[in-house]
């Protein structure tokens, strides 16, 4: 006791004290950020998780009784005619539609976006800003307005059909509106800038001396692209693909307006459960399933990029 009183500060204690104070301060300073994450992200997510384990109320909302029905019904359902347990093929095929459409959109934006980004990045510096500016202009307009503008282009008496009729390529208007073509066209247009921008950033940083070196070593244009350029701009391509793919999975407005709402997308299926379907737990479970799918895509991304770093 007295010994302790004589040496209140054993060696190193002051530093330790300062360190804990420092840690405490850091915690306190990051508290607002943590609070926002908890309130805005973790909280609502928790509500969804809880709701997905409850029983649907008769007219929407939930009853506070535990049930696994919501989760079960995402995968299997009782046949409404003979009560046997069957695969919920409606949910699965709707998920597949959203998934494949997202994949197609990502590939199309890649095919159009990468050359565009390349073109912009290889312009003289002064003009690059101008082209980038043009790429971002569509963002100034509301998504719904852009989508309805596309409708004006492709309707039976729209601009495209009128021009084609006039120059005699077709005899009667093409049915483009309310087809899968319309959805693919619209989604590609809407999400293209999200592909162009990250790829542009990657090409911008590309050291062109490496490409020259490849040519000096007798690499053909194709080999130089495949072995030198592609690996170097890969992070941009992957980031762009994720930026396009993830929002596509949950897309709601574009497929609804251009696709005519005849076939549900995953986003619309979820909405149905909270609306006329009056099955909130199923809706919550389906939303969480979609989140899990996105998460898998992101983990895949992290694995690829970290492997790259380890290799490098």
């Amino acid at each position: 006791m007295s010994a302790q009183a004589e040496t209140p500060f054993p060696p190193g204690a002051l530093e330790r004290e300062a360190e804990t104070a420092d840690t405490r301060r850091r915690w306190l300073l990051s508290l607002p950020a943590i609070a926002i994450i908890v309130c805005a992200a973790a909280g609502p997510l928790l509500v969804m998780v809880i709701y997905s384990f409850l029983t649907p109320g008769d007219y929407g909302n939930v009853k506070w009784e535990f049930s696994l029905e919501g989760w079960m019904n995402t995968i299997v359902q009782r046949d409404i005619f003979d009560d046997t347990l069957i695969w919920a093929d409606a949910h699965l095929s709707i998920f597949w539609r959203s998934f494949s459409l997202s994949l197609i959109t990502t590939i199309l934006t890649l095919i159009i976006g990468v050359p565009t980004a390349w073109f912009v990045a290889t312009q003289p510096p002064g003009r690059r800003e101008f082209w980038l500016f043009l790429v971002t202009v569509p963002f100034w307009t509301n998504l719904l307005v852009r989508t309805i503008a596309i409708q004006e282009l492709i309707r039976s008496e729209g601009v495209i059909n009128l021009v084609l009729l006039k120059i005699g390529i077709i005899d009667e208007p093409l049915q483009m509106m309310f087809t899968d073509f319309a959805i693919g066209f619209g989604m590609t247009y809407v999400y293209l800038p999200l592909m162009v921008l990250p790829v542009y950033a990657a090409v911008d940083k590309l050291d062109f001396r490496l490409v020259e070196a490849a040519h000096d070593l007798y690499a053909s244009r194709w080999t130089a692209f495949r072995r030198v350029i592609l690996p170097l701009i890969k992070p941009g391509i992957i980031a762009g693909s994720i930026l396009v793919f993830v929002p596509c999975l949950g897309a709601y407005v574009t497929p609804r307006v251009l696709g005519g709402g005849k076939n549900l997308m995953f986003g619309n299926l979820i909405e149905l459960q909270f609306g006329a379907g009056r099955n909130w737990p199923l809706g919550a479970a389906l939303s969480l399933m979609l989140m899990a799918a996105v998460m898998v895509a992101l983990i895949f991304y992290v694995r690829i990029t970290s492997r790259e770093k380890a290799d490098g």
Binding site: Y59, I80, A90, H91, N263, L272, A276, R278, N279
Partner: peptide, 17 residues
Amino acid sequence: APETQALYTRIWTDLQK
């Protein structure tokens, strides 16, 4: 009735799958 409504929702989803 809620049970009937649930049946209709299933048919409705089937229709739009």
